[in-house]
Design a protein around this nucleic acid. Structure first.
Ligand SMILES: NC(=O)c1ccc[n+]([C@@H]2O[C@H](COP(=O)([O-])OP(=O)(O)OC[C@H]3O[C@@H](n4cnc5c(N)ncnc54)[C@H](O)[C@@H]3O)[C@@H](O)[C@H]2O)c1
Ligand SMILES: NC(=O)c1ccc[n+]([C@@H]2O[C@H](COP(=O)([O-])OP(=O)(O)OC[C@H]3O[C@@H](n4cnc5c(N)ncnc54)[C@H](O)[C@@H]3O)[C@@H](O)[C@H]2O)c1
Lengths: 225, 225
DNA sequence: ATCCCTTTGTGAACCAATGCACAAAGTCGC
DNA sequence: GCGACTTTGTGCATTGGTTCACAAAGGGAT
């Protein structure tokens, strides 16, 4: 069952992958400020993690540091970028151009790092044809053609919850295997498709849980039902 | 040690807390469809987790199921809501009313579950005074007064990255201990303050990593350094 | 070249979370 | 009231992740 003939055991732990972008951001900041080398201690500080964790994370990519000195900033930026796949361009389509979709389309921050918004799609005839951030909003009927035609490999879902699964199924049918979902639904997808979700409401509920606890726990106002 | 009215296991694992909102959402959907009881199997299915995990999660809150039958939907909704602190109202302030802040302010989805947007704050005189989603945008100078005056306990940061740490320091100084940060910076906060971050760019990078891997890994175009 | 100092890379211990598997507890039909 | 059946709640093994702590590696000074 295990594929034994993997050339190199390229198993980078998921937790590490999730932190690499953090390191990358810190490194970009340092590069801009002209810092040439950085110790694990300093980089860890900038990324908000502890230094042992940072070193272990980096060790999964290879031995890119120099003992007694630290890491060369530019070189590490390159290595992490390469590992994350940021040395190539990714075409992203945003489906659902409402409040949130618009904000995302107007957001410059992710275009900067290898991600390019290649299409905006919506079902509402009122919205279709609008120009947002220099892009024309196209009709959802064009979904398959647009994805195939522009080499879209990542789809951002910003439709209402009720529409998300249907759109999801359609993009998967055309071969998309990476989806970022903002709609508050659990998408069901076949194996091999990655879905990441961003859910404001869940985050707030987690904060509320801890907040309540700090304030004395649910015991204060709780009668014995 | 076993007493039916002893759900007082104060230590709910963080991973469990993060899933409770998911269960809650699934349960709300079921309640709306008139489903009275649900098995761990079905609820787990709806929430996208496996049933053993769901049962273990729920067992941390207490013994609220009936063997051979399942869980009573309404009752479980209440228990989870109470545990998460959703039986009370939380006043939320959104700081930074740009593209994203506006989308958040207009978003109805989280007002529904105990969260109420109590204030919108911005530094730009152009924006201050606007009415968004029925709320007046106030000047950031009012920050302290607004937080104290309206009992704000959760702050959402949607300012540019450069301003986030400063605003963060200020809200903490007035006693806020729960922050949801959308700015792409690592906030530094004292112990006892919870920060959760939502970072679109990180999510995309994680997707890119896996996408690249599916496509053949970074080994394809890699020369020997 | 040699010594000292700094910092990496990693084995090992620890801790958290997951998933299996099943006894215990309950329901329902008769 | 009883036995068959269903489903919970949990002990246990396993996996994944974090942290500690230190030997090995390299740089710079002399
Ligand atoms: N706005 C927020 O701050 C926020 C926060 C968290 C989550 N969300 C979620 O993000 C999603 C979008 O939120 P929003 O505030 O932008 O909602 P919105 O109603 O403003 O926008 C939704 C857009 O999707 C379009 N749409 C509907 N069905 C479609 C379909 N089948 N194909 C393509 N487009 C379709 C609509 O025409 C509309 O333009 C929702 O699921 C919401 O729950 C939003
Ligand atoms: N728009 C997105 O889709 C998106 C996605 C991911 C992350 N973000 C992040 O969210 C943040 C906001 O993004 P945006 O697109 O809304 O930016 P934006 O520039 O449209 O809005 C930022 C707002 O913050 C206000 N502001 C600036 N300094 C302030 C201060 N000191 N106090 C109070 N308000 C202040 C500005 O006046 C402006 O209205 C940024 O950090 C961005 O990186 C945005």
């Amino acid at each position: 069952m295990k594929s034994p003939s993997q050339p190199r055991d390229r198993g980078i732990p998921e937790a590490t992958v999730a932190r690499l972008p953090l390191y990358l951001r810190a490194l970009h900041g340092m590069a801009e400020r002209g810092i040439a080398t950085v110790s694990s201690e300093d980089l860890a500080g900038a990324a908000g993690v502890n230094s042992a964790k940072l070193r272990k994370d980096l060790s999964h990519l290879g031995s890119y540091g120099t003992r007694g000195v630290g890491y060369e900033v530019e070189y590490l930026v390159y290595q992490i970028s390469r590992e994350l796949g940021l040395t190539q361009d990714w075409a992203v389509a945003i489906v659902g151009v409402g409040n949130l979709g618009r904000a995302l389309a107007n957001y410059g921050g992710f275009v900067s790092r290898g991600f390019r918004v290649a299409a905006l799609l919506d079902a509402d005839p009122e919205v279709v044809g609008d120009t947002i951030a220099g892009l024309n909003v196209e009709h959802i009927d064009e979904l398959e053609a647009v994805i195939a035609g522009r080499g879209v490999s990542i789809v951002v879902l910003a439709t209402p919850a009720a529409a998300a699964q249907k759109v999801c199924d359609r993009v998967i049918a055309v071969g998309v295997t990476s989806i970022l979902n903002f709609a508050p639904v659990v998408l069901s997808v076949p194996d091999g498709v990655d879905v990441r979700k961003v859910d404001l409401s869940i985050e707030l509920q987690i904060l509320a849980f801890h907040e309540q606890r700090k304030a004395g726990g649910p015991l204060m106002a709780v009668d014995g039902q």
